[in-house]
């Protein structure tokens, strides 16, 4: 990748991806079952921006007015209100509110004046995170909190795209990457259940969800005005290979761009900084065998991503992937059954 484009990648897209300390602590604390909602209030108190702005949520204004009216002279009313808000919202909604404040910070839309409008709207601001978390919870999939964090990578990148006025193509590519990642995540999760004594099973869903996210960055960094050198021209060229377009996509990417989308995905995870294990697995998801001697569980995680991608594309496993299946002690008929079931669901 040329130096100028690499600098653009770092400055415009990757550095803003680093969540602040408050959001990071909030995500860690809210995933910890021992932590109570009131502990989150303590965390908010460490940063007065968060402690105050959570009190600007529209839906709480009449409640807050009642609480203030109860005892107007109380000097610690701010603290009392904060404690009552987190008790009322509970852990998940408090976490969501804090994360949305962090996103406002990223987008530069925190109120500068008392009269400025300010709203928290989790359903819109963190749509991707909430979608995967709800799916995991509704379907009794384990580790929904990790899926939520993985989904947040998409929400964060979306906010960066909007702020940077990145092309519509890149924004569409981000939505498409999420759809593809979501499908891969469900398949990877099912695959991981066939693997015995697997240490990283809690990372499978989030790793698969994040594998395609780099495609949106490819679209942002190689826009349409680069003509034949653009990401969209590359996709169009792959389409010409018809039944073998996925093979062309994998084989030609590094030749055309000097970097592959999943390597950018791994960089996204690296900068977000919460799912370090996922980063390595995504980075090696096209060549899991490189991890074989170094870390057998990481190898298995990367191999699951590789196989999930193939199943998501509705393709048969390659010979190398059959080796992965043997290493992971997954019987071929179980995978065949899975892929038949997927076809039937379609």
């Amino acid at each position: 990748m040329e130096v100028g484009r690499f600098s653009q990648l770092i400055a415009e897209y990757l550095q803003p991806l680093v969540p602040g300390e408050t959001v990071r602590s909030l995500l860690e604390a809210s995933a910890d079952p021992v932590i109570r909602p009131l502990d989150l209030a303590t965390l908010f108190r460490r940063n007065q921006t968060y402690a105050q702005l959570i009190r600007r949520m529209d839906l709480l204004q009449s409640r807050i007015a009642e609480w203030v009216a109860e005892d107007e002279k109380r000097l610690d009313m701010g603290d009392v209100i904060l404690d009552r808000i987190v008790s009322l919202l509970g852990k998940q909604a408090t976490r969501n509110a804090g994360v949305c404040i962090g996103l406002h910070r990223l987008s530069g839309t925190l109120p500068k004046k008392e009269t400025d409008r300010f709203n928290l709207n989790p359903q819109d601001q963190i749509k991707f995170a909430l979608t995967v978390e709800a799916f995991c919870q509704e379907n009794s999939l384990a580790y929904s909190e990790k899926a939520y964090v993985a989904g947040l990578h998409y929400d964060w990148l979306k906010a960066i795209f909007v702020k940077n006025k990145t092309s519509k193509d890149a924004q569409t590519a981000l939505s498409n990457a999420f759809t593809e990642g979501f499908e891969m995540a469900r398949i990877a999760y099912d695959l991981s259940r066939l693997v015995k004594n697997f240490k990283y099973d809690h990372y499978v869903f989030s790793a698969a969800l994040l594998e395609p996210i780099g495609m949106s960055l490819m679209s942002a960094l190689y826009p349409k005005d680069l003509a034949a050198k653009s990401w969209s021209a590359f996709i169009a060229d792959c389409e010409k290979f018809k039944g073998r377009k996925d093979d062309a996509f994998d084989a030609l990417q590094s030749q055309r761009f000097d970097i592959r989308h999943h390597e950018l995905s791994a960089l996204v995870v690296n900068y977000f900084g919460i799912l370090a294990t996922v980063e390595k697995a995504v980075h090696f998801s096209k060549e899991p065998h490189f991890l074989k001697g170094a870390d057998s569980d990481l190898y298995r995680l990367a191999a699951i991503l590789s196989m999930a991608k193939t199943l998501q594309r509705k393709k048969p496993m390659s010979e190398v992937q059959k080796d992965y299946m043997r290493d992971l002690q997954i019987a071929e008929h179980e995978v065949l059954l899975m892929s038949e079931e997927m076809k039937m669901k379609k």
Partner: peptide, 17 residues
């Protein structure tokens, strides 16, 4: 660093930035 915003009752500084 655009760290100052108006909170619920007064101006506040984002401790992260």
């Amino acid at each position: 660093t655009a760290s100052i915003s108006f909170g619920a009752t007064q101006y506040v500084i984002d401790q992260d930035t």
